[in-house]
């Protein structure tokens, strides 16, 4: 097989993994609350900036930087939930938890919070791309047979597989994961058997935003691009992947993210950089028109 093609494939897989990490956050939050968190892209930005601050302040090794991004993502996820979602959850019954008014209010409040976060970051760091010290950049070439890959691709693929495994463990083998799954299945039933809806929602936001934050710093170091609006495009694409995957299916979201990433990087053979963004948006429109429930979605009544 063509080596260039293989390299693009691996590149696409690593981009797809990043989308997957963001899409999982969207999917978890949608599963539990039935709302779309439009500030999720900002968790990605916050992760990247937290890593950058760590690099500049304490010159920490890479592992610690990623941990810092995870922590920053998790904490800001919790903060986001408290500020933008909690105040609108005035009633606890299922009808109002999943009501349309609640959905629209939180959609707009998360949008508002995302504007505020973006502007505050821009105020403190400036709108331009941040400079990253050379030794932290993840683009050392690594030769594997005829392929020349970079260390960033290995790091992204490796650590995202690690994080996906961790997520699987959390969701299926811990109490928190069990309650997240219970509440996304049936909030009222979960409440009746004694689960705390509030705590579970917080932990969902924490888990989802941690993955987003980690994705942010990895992309930032791989592409060398950390700037206040960096979260927008990847989060829209992750969102597309989530819709393609059927909104509340994690495997669906991951598979669709990988498909999206690979298609995008293969499309750069034929299209220029700017137009390759179209791939994701046309996937979105095609999915919504032909498979409104998503390719891997369970059957729902109406979409």
């Amino acid at each position: 097989m063509d080596t260039y093609f293989l390299m693009q494939l691996i590149n696409g897989l690593s981009v797809g993994m990043i989308y997957a990490l963001i899409a999982i956050g969207f999917t978890l939050i949608f599963g539990v609350l039935n709302v779309v968190n439009f500030a999720h892209g900002e968790m990605y930005t916050i992760g990247a900036f937290a890593g950058l601050v760590c690099i500049n302040m304490i010159h920490a090794p890479l592992a610690i930087i990623i941990v810092a991004a995870l922590v920053a993502g998790g904490l800001s996820g919790i903060g986001l939930e408290r500020i933008a979602f909690k105040p609108f959850r005035r009633f606890q019954d299922e009808a109002s938890l999943k009501s349309r008014a609640m959905r629209e209010a939180t959609l707009l409040s998360s949008l508002a919070v995302s504007i505020i976060i973006k502007e505050v970051i821009q105020h403190f760091f400036g709108a331009e791309m941040q400079t990253i010290p050379g030794q932290y950049m993840l683009n050392n070439p690594i030769q594997v047979g005829p392929l020349s890959l970079s260390s960033g691709q290995f790091l992204i693929l490796g650590s995202s597989i690690l994080m996906l495994g961790g997520l699987q463990y959390v969701l299926y083998h811990t109490r928190i994961g069990l309650s997240i799954r219970a509440i996304s299945n049936n909030p009222l039933g979960a409440k009746y058997v004694g689960l705390s809806v509030d705590k579970t929602i917080i932990s969902t936001f924490a888990v989802g935003s941690m993955l987003g934050g980690a994705a942010g710093i990895m992309v930032g170091l791989y592409y060398g691009a950390i700037f206040p609006t960096m979260g927008f495009t990847p989060s829209i694409k992750a969102f597309v992947a989530m819709v393609m995957g059927g909104l509340s299916s994690i495997p669906g979201a991951v598979i669709c993210s990988l498909i999206l990433g690979v298609c995008e990087s293969l499309a750069t053979n034929y299209l220029t950089q700017g137009w390759s963004d179209m791939v994701a948006y046309s996937f979105l429109i095609v999915t919504l028109i032909f498979f409104p429930q998503g390719i891997f979605g369970s059957r729902r009544e109406r979409v």
């Binding site: 779309v36 349309r100 959905r103 959609l107 829209i236 969102f239 597309v240 819709v243 220029t272 700017g274 137009w275 963004d277 179209m278 948006y281 046309s282 979105l284 429109i285 919504l288 028109i289 409104p292 109406r302 979409v303």
Partner: peptide, 28 residues
């Protein structure tokens, strides 16, 4: 024509996609 069958969040997402398609087209 194609998106009016969609309700609530799906419609919002579809229009978001259309908006981005137009923006990318104008830009490129």
């Amino acid at each position: 024509l194609p998106t009016m069958r969609l309700i609530s969040i799906y419609f919002a997402v579809a229009t978001l996609g259309v908006g981005e398609i137009v923006h990318v087209t104008l830009l490129n």
